[in-house]
Write a protein that binds this DNA or RNA. Structure first.
Lengths: 190, 190, 190, 190
DNA sequence: GATGAATGAGCCTTCATTCAT
DNA sequence: TATGAATGAAGGCTCATTCAT
C-alpha cells in the first residue's frame, strides 16, 4: 500500500501559492493546482475535503509560519531598539522570501474563503510586537501614540517595501535596508 | 433610439467594486454584477465587450480617479511641507473614501486581467509626487535617499492606515491624522 | 427575450422517464437527459435547481398524474362492482400506458432522492379506493379482510400484469383483461 | 499463500444488498461496498473483475437462491392444492426474509448491468410452478386461463404483500397469511 | 492475498457569452 | 437598447480501477 505523504501536502501548498502569485485567487483551479503539484486531480481530494479546505488550511499554515518567523532571534530581554530592529528585519525578510504567501493572505482577506473569526486570529499574531511597542512607550523611547497606530505605521512601511522590491524587481542592499529602517525608526522614535 | 446611459455604466462599476470588496475578484460573475447593478446580464454586453473589458476599463477609471484626487488643491508653488501634507492627506482621504477601489486595484495586480504595461502606467500616476520629493531633497528638507524608497515609505504608511481603519472599523480623528502624518514626516525629514 | 417554455419541462420529464426505463435511475446523467430532451445541459438548471429537484418534481408529477387517472369515470354513486371494475381498469390502463412512470416511482423508492414523508403522501393516493373497499365490506359483497390487504391483493395483481405485458411483450386482449379481472374479483368477493 | 475466502465474498454480497436496499443501485459505489463489507477497495478486485461482475454474479446468486427456496418441501407427488400452497408460502417467505434481494433483482432489471439473456434465465426459474399450474388445469381444479397469467396473478399478489409488509412495517400473522392465500386461491380456482 | 493511496475519466454544476424577443 | 432564457465549455468533485507496498 502506498503511504500518505506529507511532502505531497507541501507540494500542493507550494503549487497553490505559485498560482496565486501568478494569477490571483481567481485564477486557481483544482486542475491547475494538481498539475503544478505533479499529482492527479483526485489526489487533492485525498488530502483536502474540497477547494475551500485547501485554501483555509494553507491560509492557516501561512499565518503560523509568519508568526514563527517574525520573532526569530528576538528576546524580550533585548534592549528596545535591538529587539525592534530584529523584528523589523524579520518581518521584512519574511515578506521578501515568502512573498507569494503575503499575496495569498491578502487575497484571502477579500474572498468568501476566510471568515471573520479567522481574521481576528490573524491580528493576534502581532501581540508580542505590541508588547514591545508598549514597553518602548513606557521607556519613553518612542512616541506616545496608540500602539495600534505605531504598529500600523511600522507594518505599512515594511509591506510596501516588500511589494515594490518584488513588483519593480529591485535589490535591497544592506545600505537600503538601513535607510528604510532609519525612516521607520525616525518616524516612531520619541 | 435610446442612448447608451452613462449612469448605467457607473451602476455597473459600483456593483463590481462592491462585489470585489465582499468576495474578491474570484467572487465576481457577470450574473452577479448584473443583478447587483439592477440590469439584465445581456445589458452588460451592450456596454462592455466582455468581462475582461469591464475589469480593465474599471481598473482604468479607478487609476485615473486616484490620480486626479491625489493632487487636488496641490500646487507646485506650495512650500514643500505644505504640498507634501496636502498630497499625503489627499491620498489617505482617497483610500478611505474609496476603499473598494483600492482593493480592486490590488486584486487586479495579481490577476490575468492586467498586463505588465498597465502596471507601468500605474506607476506614472505618482510622478508629480516624485517631483515634489526630489525638490524636497534639493532643498535639503528630507533625507537623501533614493526617491523611489521615500515614496515607498510614504505610501506604505498611508495604505496600512487606510486598511486598518476599514478592517478594524476605526475612526480617524484629526488628532490621529496629525499623529500619523507626524510619523511619516519624522521618517522622511532630513 | 426568450420566454420560459413549459413544454420544455415536459420534454425534460419525458427524456428522464425514457432513460430510467432504459437503464434505471443509476443510468441517468444530466448530460444524457439534456441530450435526450434536445436542450443544453445548462438549460436543465434554468428549470431545476439541481438533479435532485428534477427527480423529486418528476416523482411528484407522476404521483399526481396517477391519482387523477385512477379515479377517472368513477363515481361513488356507482354500484360497487361497477366502481371497482372502473378503478381496476383505470389502474391497469395507467400502468400500461405510462409504464416508465411506474418504474421511475419504484426506483425512486429505493434511492436517496425520496424521503419518508413523500412515501406517505404516495400512500394517500389510494384513499378513495380504500373507501370503496370499505363500502364493499359493509355491503357484504367482498371478504371481511383488513382493507389494507384487500387493496394489496388488487394492486399486486395489476402491477404484475402490467410488468409482464411490458417485459415479455404480451398483448392484452379484451378477453385476457376479463380473465384477469375475474381472478381479482373471485379473490376478493365474499 | 492465503486462499480466497468465501466468507469474504458473502460479506461483499451482503454489503451490496444492504446498500441497494438503502439507496438503490444508483447509490452503490465500490468504495461504499468495501467499507460496508469491512475490506479494502482493492480487495473487491481480487474477488471480482469489476463492478459489473460483482453485480451480475450477485444477481445470479440471488436468482439461484430464490429457485432453491421456492420449491423446498415441494414434491410433484403432492396433491395439487398442497403443492400450490407450499410453493405460495415458500415464495412469500423468501420474499420476506430476503427482501433486499428482491429489490436488487428488480433494480437490476432496469439497469445496464443485466442483459436480455439473463432476464430469460430468470423466467425459467418458475418452470416447476408452471408445470404444477398446468397440472391443476388438467385436473380442472383451477381456471382455464393461459398459465402465464395464472402465474402472473399468483406472483403479483405475493410480491405486493411482501413489499407492503416491509414498507409499512406490518406483521403477517398466521391468520393474515391464510386470508391472503385464500384470496389467491379463490382467484385461480375453477 | 490485502491494503488504501493514487489516478483520471466522467458527472454535476456554474458562468461567460449569445440571441430571440 | 434591454431582457433573460439558452448555450456549452470548463471547473469542482466522485468513483471505478490500478498499483506500490
Amino acid at each position: 500500500m502506498k503511504i500518505k505523504d506529507d511532502n505531497k501536502i507541501n507540494d500542493i501548498y507550494a503549487a497553490t501559492l505559485k498560482l496565486v502569485k501568478a494569477s490571483g485567487l481567481a485564477g486557481i483551479t483544482m486542475q491547475a493546482v494538481a498539475k503544478e503539484a505533479g499529482v492527479a486531480t483526485g489526489t487533492l481530494y485525498i488530502y483536502f475535503q474540497n477547494k475551500d479546505e485547501l485554501i483555509i488550511r494553507l491560509f492557516d499554515v501561512c499565518v503560523k509560519n509568519s508568526a514563527s518567523n517574525f520573532f526569530k532571534d528576538y528576546s524580550v530581554r533585548d534592549p528596545f531598539k535591538v529587539g525592534f530592529r530584529t523584528i523589523w528585519s524579520n518581518i521584512l525578510q519574511h515578506r521578501l522570501s515568502r512573498f507569494p504567501e503575503s499575496i495569498f493572505i491578502e487575497q484571502c482577506f477579500h474572498s468568501p474563503f476566510i471568515d471573520e473569526d479567522t481574521k481576528i486570529t490573524l491580528k493576534k499574531m502581532f501581540d508580542p510586537l505590541l508588547e514591545l511597542l508598549n514597553r518602548g512607550k513606557r521607556e519613553h523611547l518612542i512616541k506616545n501614540i496608540d500602539t495600534f497606530w505605531l504598529l500600523t505605521f511600522m507594518i505599512g512601511g515594511i509591506n510596501e517595501v516588500a511589494k515594490r522590491v518584488v513588483y519593480f524587481n529591485k535589490k535591497l542592499s544592506v545600505e537600503l535596508m538601513d535607510q528604510n529602517f532609519q525612516m521607520c525608526w525616525d518616524g516612531i522614535k520619541a
